[in-house]
Simulated scan of single mutants.
Amino acid sequence: MTGVWGETAACNYLAGLGWKIVQRNFRTRYGEIDMIAQDGQYIVFVEVKTRRDSRFAAAREHVTAAKQRRILTAAEEWLQLHPTDLQPRFDVVEVYGAEEAAVPPRIHLIENAFGG
């Protein structure tokens, strides 16, 4: 499954940056958060988008306003269950490639992707 492979690649990438992976695939009735991680003073809610390439559109373009609202609502629920003094942030990780490819995936982190 492309999504699981991409999420694992993103998880490994972020862990390599020194992030602490707190939880993967947090699900609520409002939606799902692919990954929750700690990056220094931030608790980061991460949406992972995996595509073979960016020929037709960047992966981040698939994180629509409706999807962002669902992630924000799910994050509010997670924060109620797990109180923290960390500042919340919403990032998108684009993963380009394929599990069966001979080359490693190309990964692009977009911090504060929902900032307006």
Rank of each mutant, 00 (worst) to 15 (best):
T2Q: 13
T2W: 10
G6A: 14
T8Q: 13
C11K: 15
N12F: 02
Y13D: 11
Y13M: 02
L14A: 10
A15S: 15
L17A: 01
L17D: 05
I21L: 09
I21G: 00
Q23A: 13
N25G: 05
N25F: 01
T28D: 05
T28N: 05
R29V: 03
G31L: 08
D34Y: 02
D34M: 09
M35Y: 03
M35T: 08
M35E: 04
I36K: 07
D39H: 15
D39P: 11
G40W: 13
G40Q: 14
I43G: 08
I43E: 10
V44S: 10
V46Y: 12
V46E: 09
E47D: 15
V48T: 11
K49S: 08
R51C: 01
R52Q: 12
R52K: 12
A58W: 07
A58F: 14
A58H: 14
A58Y: 15
A58M: 05
A59F: 03
A66I: 05
A66S: 06
Q68T: 04
Q68E: 13
R69E: 14
R69N: 03
R70Y: 12
R70A: 11
R70K: 15
I71E: 09
T73L: 11
A75K: 11
E77R: 11
W78F: 14
W78Y: 15
L81F: 03
P83A: 04
T84Q: 01
T84N: 02
L86G: 04
L86H: 11
P88F: 07
F90K: 15
F90W: 10
D91S: 00
D91A: 03
D91Q: 03
V92E: 06
E94H: 03
G97P: 06
E99A: 12
E100G: 02
E100L: 12
A101Y: 06
A102G: 14
V103S: 10
I107H: 05
I107W: 10
I107C: 09
I110T: 03
A113L: 11
F114L: 13
G116P: 10
